[in-house]
Write a protein that binds this DNA or RNA. Sequence first.
DNA 1: TAGTGGTCTAGACCACAGT
DNA 2: CTGTGGTCTAGACCACTAC
Lengths: 246, 246
Amino acid sequence: MTSPVHVVVDRRSPVPLYFQVAQQIEVMIDRGELLPGSRLENEIVLADQLGLSRPTMRQAIQYLVDKGLLVRKRGVGTQVVHGQVKRTVELSSLFDDLRRANQHPTTEVISVAVVPVTDDVAVALHRPPGTEVVRLERLRRANDEPLAILQNWLPTGLAELTPERLEAHGLYELLRAAGVTLRVAAQRIGARAATHREATLLTERRGAPLLTMTRTTYDDSGRAVEHGSHVYRPALYSFEMALIER
Amino acid sequence: MTSPVHVVVDRRSPVPLYFQVAQQIEVMIDRGELLPGSRLENEIVLADQLGLSRPTMRQAIQYLVDKGLLVRKRGVGTQVVHGQVKRTVELSSLFDDLRRANQHPTTEVISVAVVPVTDDVAVALHRPPGTEVVRLERLRRANDEPLAILQNWLPTGLAELTPERLEAHGLYELLRAAGVTLRVAAQRIGARAATHREATLLTERRGAPLLTMTRTTYDDSGRAVEHGSHVYRPALYSFEMALIER
DNA sequence: TAGTGGTCTAGACCACAGT
DNA sequence: CTGTGGTCTAGACCACTAC
């Protein structure tokens, strides 16, 4: 009563074995080759079938459990979660997300400037008051429809942030291309009424409900590399995520 | 230039060793004994100091990395993240969260009834149309201030959901007490304007912005055990979470 | 009782960062 | 070059589930 898992690993590949396995199982779930509720073979058998050690096989399975695709129960086994799975929120930019969903994102750069930090941004970026930072304001459209107003602050000198580059790429893409490794972010999602200016930019009524997100992102040295304060039109955007009990 | 980690493990305890270590390091970070940016000893040394194997020590560290408290960089080491860390959203109920924050939550049960599922709930709970489910509607207050309207649907027979019990406990608490193990949830956060009825219950104006959350929760067999559709007053509540790049 | 995942050990080799 | 985390192995024992 278990579903067979067809996976082949390439030991010459630089891609870790556990990741090769996890990716292939994920593809099988996406394609419906592994149905919701179906049980996988146990770890030992799977490891044996693939010629891997049990810890490596466990790592692959745990990766998918953390992603919300599988559930495991001691004494029972590993099963595919029911229902269409929404992916955990990842450290991706809105631009990348929209492009992946074929939503044709475009960016209008409203302003790029080097300014002294305000107090709240100084706290968020852990910079002393008075430090100069880059301040961005962008209007993001999807399929030509205004979707969000994005305000961001970054330490100076991190990446070359020209209006041209910002219109062609997402901010995170530019940061990664500049050698910045984004690792951790602290994020808060809320709601509030649109100001007059926001309403105008987003073609909403003044006072219309907007979804808000503020986020501070840290690199792999634990340093704050970006702080953002964004507002979204709730009819066109919402946040989806998977929660996992560890 | 590394910070010493004072941890003792109790091998007679039923608590896993990696978890004992992770908890104690987390406490040290909370107390400021490990400062943001400070580097920990490397895995090998730490494992040696605590009398553990390296995999076990790695598991402890990885747990805290996944929680957003630490960052690691190959060739460099493990550091405490800068800034006050916001915890990852967990599979906890609003009631528990508020109680933990000493916000004195109270619950007014508006209705509890067994009803046939509507189409959207049938899809969410993966039940055939026409199935009977328990429908709850509750008004949650914090410090006597109306905070949220909570609508939930559950399969019948999961737990004893009387108004009395619901007023004294959170829904998740009652489910766990009934032997249900919550494992994974898919959640969507958005915003919209308050209806007349919502505005009245929440002492807001009609059309006021509200934060919305819909969530479907699955147990450790991967079956849907709860679907909720909640609205929150954004001035009093927002969602915080950590995002980790794996 | 049999089968499952959960934890733990003691090694090994590799890739990458900083010197 | 040295030191770090990343990956991988081949076992072991335990706790929980279901029958």
